[in-house]
Amino acid sequence: MIDTVMIACVALILIGMAATIAARDPFDKLISLSVMIAGVFPFIADRGYLDVAIAVALVAPISTIFILMACRRETA
């Protein structure tokens, strides 16, 4: 991988991690978690595991939707 792209993906992971830990509102935490997940995918695709990348990309939003079920029950 090109060094600039690698540094950008690591920076995206660390920015998302810090924002997820620091945020207080559950929706802000989920949006920051989406930023962190976006930084993980180029590493999976760089190793050549494209089938794993497709499977994880289609399965990961289901986890977020399950967490949103708990969020709505708490705020309502």
Binding site: F27, L30, I31, S34, A38, F41, A45, G48, L50, D51, A53, I54, A57, L58, A60, P61, T64, I65, L68
Partner: peptide
């Protein structure tokens, strides 16, 4: 590799679904 465009499409669909759910 010809399968990378499919991986990018799958990631884009998943991310859009997540944002719309939020």
């Amino acid at each position: 590799h010809p399968l990378t465009i499919l991986a990018a499409a799958a990631y884009f669909v998943g991310s859009t679904l997540e944002s719309n759910a939020i």
